[in-house]
């Protein structure tokens, strides 16, 4: 038994050694999220509002290039509708896709042309390339948001803290031109992106009051889904796998005891 405890302790110490330095920046404020924990699922209403915030605010500068419109209607996604198991048929998804303009082509005369999006398209990027994005944002590149909550340590809390964390620079801090003060930012306290939200910036279709905190929370919920779209499927499968492995272990232990019953060892 002691040896078993020793092996567990070894495992625990190994995983404890994995704690990463969080880089610069103040530690993110811990929020309660519905998607946390073994049984966690996304808050669909919040993620839908978050998509609206993303579309109306963030998408002006940020891309989310790994997300296709059909993804929005997948199982576990904000706009999933059980009536449309094939998300390409989901009318909400189709309608959202149509709101975006996609560059396609070349046509028969060799020119690129614009057309409304279809469910098969990825969310189009606001700039043609990285250089164009930097040129339009005084040299700072607005990162792609499809993985942002997994590409930052403690990502969801970090993003929420960052979005709600803008304040005036304290005494003695000299801000560079065009920079905003944000104590949570990992790349130092000065950020090229100014505070993106003010109260009432978007008008939520479901009537929720659009405070800065609410918008930050909703867009974080949406982007957490975007970074980990299969979470609900994964956790559901994981639960079944754990139950199966537990039962299998019991059976194997029984078999083991049966085989070894009369053997001294």
């Amino acid at each position: 038994m002691l040896k078993r405890i020793a092996s567990l302790a070894l495992l625990a110490s190994l995983s404890a050694g994995l704690a990463f330095a969080a880089g610069g920046g103040k530690e993110a404020r811990k929020q309660n999220w519905k998607f946390e924990g073994v049984f966690g699922t996304y808050d669909k209403a919040s993620a839908q509002r978050g998509f609206q915030v993303f579309q109306e605010v963030c998408a002006a500068c940020h891309s989310a290039k790994y997300i296709a419109f059909y993804n929005l209607g997948d199982k576990g996604a904000p706009f999933y509708d059980p009536a449309y198991p094939n998300s390409n048929d989901n009318p909400v998804v189709k309608a959202i896709a149509k709101q975006f303009t996609v560059t396609a082509g070349p046509d028969s005369s060799g020119d690129m042309f614009e057309r409304p999006g279809t469910s098969a398209d990825k969310i189009p990027a606001p700039f043609a390339n990285e250089m164009a994005a930097m040129a339009a944002n005084s040299g700072a590149f607005p990162p792609d948001l499809s993985l942002i909550t997994r590409a930052r340590y403690n990502g969801s809390n970090y993003l929420y803290s960052l979005l709600t964390g803008y304040k005036d620079a304290p005494e003695g801090v000299q801000l560079s031109a065009g920079m905003s003060y944000n104590p949570y930012f990992t790349g130092g306290n000065q950020m090229a992106m100014g505070a993106p939200f003010i109260d009432g910036l978007v008008e939520y279709t479901d009537g929720t009051t659009a405070s800065v905190e609410q918008m930050s929370r909703d867009v974080t919920e949406f982007l957490t889904w975007a970074a980990d779209p299969k979470m609900e499927q994964r956790k559901g499968t994981g639960l079944m796998v754990m139950i199966y492995l537990f039962l299998l272990s019991l059976l194997l232990y029984g078999s083991y005891r049966a085989v070894w019953r009369d053997v001294k060892h």
Binding site: Y244, L251, S255
Partner: peptide
Amino acid sequence: IHIATGAATIVG
């Protein structure tokens, strides 16, 4: 017990 274990393994 061996039959049950074997069957469970095959299902897995």
